[in-house]
Write a protein that binds this DNA or RNA. Structure first.
Lengths: 173, 173
DNA sequence: TATTGTTATACTCTATAACTATA
DNA sequence: TATAGTTATAGAGTATAACAATA
């Protein structure tokens, strides 16, 4: 295998990127240069998403709800009378994968599947009283712990601007 | 199982959220109300991240590089002489999972593992000539297709603001 | 023939324990 | 004893094909 580069950093270091002036040293993490990675939107997007989800899960430990479960409960509550296909596809969940997810929520008695009278193939989804109670508590935790902390770190104006740009990406990109 | 809510949307619809004035109708997706999901940063973060990664992969089809593989090649190139643990941990990849990833890159002759002379336990990572060629082409594709399109959709100023907020979240949140 | 929910299955990511060879 | 790379493994998440019931 051909390896023309030597192990000497001074010999093998690539030329500094044009957009990195000499007085603005390149971003590092633990002494390792991040290179163009600091400018790659997808990379920061992924890292930020993992952090935010971790915090969400931490805020929800008492209720034991994942982000996906929370979004499903929210959508069922807001859209009574919808079936599995409609709720799943809205969230980008494939129908086969939605089955186990609903089994879990129904097993915890947070929601129920009811055969539709109109179309006996489909299952109408609705929250149980317990499901509505949990959802209400979850919303409160999200607002007072999770989103409140995001507001602290970003500031309200930045938070709103960020949300709109992310929505733009999800919609138009 | 107790289900107090009826199937009638008018009866069971929850009160409109306080922050949604009557003249700003709630966001919908295919006729389904998104509820508080439109205001949940983590949700938009995830959807945006999936879109951006999909586009990245599409732009890279000719080189067959995933975002993770691209970031590994970039970091190896920028940090000659580093071992697997250092590169992997910088990217948030667990050492056991980094093995198969490197097997793939080394199998394609894009990089090599070399036993360190100082510490014969560790493998120094470096790109091959082929690896450097592929990386250069990948960078060009990312800049001219992927990031260029992000710039179109967001505008340069917004793109920069978004990147900084995401970096803030990844760092301080 | 088409659609809903479902099963089976597979592939990727991620996470942990434990082994080996070195230190 | 501690660390680097590795193996094995298990769990999520995601993807497709195909089946039964129903339209």
């Amino acid at each position: 295998m051909t390896v023309s580069r030597t192990a000497d950093p001074n010999v093998s270091k690539p030329a500094r990127a044009a957009r990195e002036p000499a007085d603005a040293p390149e971003a590092e993490a633990g002494g390792i240069r991040m290179g163009e990675l600091s400018e790659l939107l997808g990379y920061s997007l992924k890292r930020a998403q993992l952090r935010v989800f971790d915090d969400f899960i931490r805020c929800m430990t008492s209720l034991n709800l994942t982000p996906a479960q929370f979004s499903v409960l929210l959508l069922i509550d807001r859209n009574p009378g919808r079936n599995q296909t409609e709720i799943a596809s809205t969230l980008g969940i494939l129908r086969p994968n939605f089955v186990a997810m609903l089994d879990g929520l129904e097993g915890r008695e947070l929601c129920v599947r009811v055969r539709s009278a109109n179309d006996r193939r489909s299952h109408i989804l609705m929250l149980t009283d317990k499901g509505r109670t949990i959802l209400a508590r979850a919303k409160k935790l999200v607002a007072t712990r999770h989103e409140a902390r995001l507001n602290e770190v970003l500031g309200p104006a930045n938070r709103a601007a960020l949300l709109e740009m992310l929505a733009t990406l999800a919609r138009d990109f």
